[in-house]
């Protein structure tokens, strides 16, 4: 386990040089632009966490450019340490950008609108966390299989499917039956908060676990 965590830290060190003042400033400008333009907390949170997801692919990009797989091969590291470490790094990145997004909303929203609804914001952050986890669960195995350069295009395809998925879901939801079903689900969730949270967490973990296992299978066979 400690090797896996050390590897997650190595991933952080890999992208650290790219967390520069310049890129952070750029990020701030984007935040300012989005928040003043839309006044919507959810847009702001989505944008910020999107950044987190992009950074989650940086260890692949930066590593490949620098031949870092050779470094991994010189260290007492199992391939399972590498895969698990990278997932931990990605999750850590998502959660910390989520926390930042929450904090930024708490600061900016009262200025833009009359108030800050922390409950609503928290739910938005969690939903975003879920969505981006799904995206990463698809992306990481692709990167592990093909490497960054080859997979770059492929890995961003799911992103293009998102709007399509949203449209499909809303179309389905538009029908009366499903609307009723959805309402029931929301109602049930409202009544059983704890159970809902547990189910959500379990689903989230299952998703990451199966994605991780797939990544490991791909990466194990990879030669350099």
């Amino acid at each position: 386990m400690s090797r896996t965590l050390s590897f997650a830290r190595l991933d952080y060190l890999t992208i650290k040089p790219y967390l520069t003042l310049k890129s952070m400033t750029l990020l701030l400008i984007v935040i300012a632009f989005v928040s003043f333009g839309t006044g919507e907390a959810s847009m702001l949170i989505g944008m910020l966490m999107m950044y987190g997801t992009i950074y989650a692919s940086y260890p692949f990009a930066v590593g490949e450019k620098n031949g870092i797989d050779t470094l991994y091969a010189t260290l007492p590291l199992k391939k399972s340490n590498i895969v698990a470490g990278r997932y931990i790094f990605a999750i850590f990145l998502n959660i910390s950008t989520g926390a930042v997004a929450f904090a930024v909303s708490a600061i900016i929203m009262p200025v833009l609108r009359e108030g800050f609804n922390w409950k609503e914001t928290l739910i938005t952050v969690i939903i975003c966390l879920f969505i981006f986890s799904v995206l990463e669960s698809i992306q990481l195995p692709i990167y592990f299989k093909f490497g960054y350069a080859k997979a770059k295009f492929l890995a961003y395809l799911p992103l293009a499917f998102f709007p399509a998925a949203v449209i499909t879901i809303s179309a389905v939801a538009g029908k009366e039956n499903s609307l009723e079903f959805l309402n029931n689900v929301i109602l049930w969730a409202g009544e059983n908060v704890l159970l809902t949270v547990i189910i959500a967490v379990v689903l989230w973990m299952l998703l990451l676990l199966s994605s991780g296992l797939l990544s490991y299978r791909f990466y194990k066979d990879r030669q350099f």
């Binding site: 190595l10 620098n66 031949g67 470094l71």
Partner: peptide
């Protein structure tokens, strides 16, 4: 070398 180009020497040590 198989280290990140942008690493300083102390980063290399911290990483490995």
């Amino acid at each position: 070398p198989f280290y990140v180009d942008e690493w300083k020497i102390k980063d290399v040590e911290a990483a490995v």
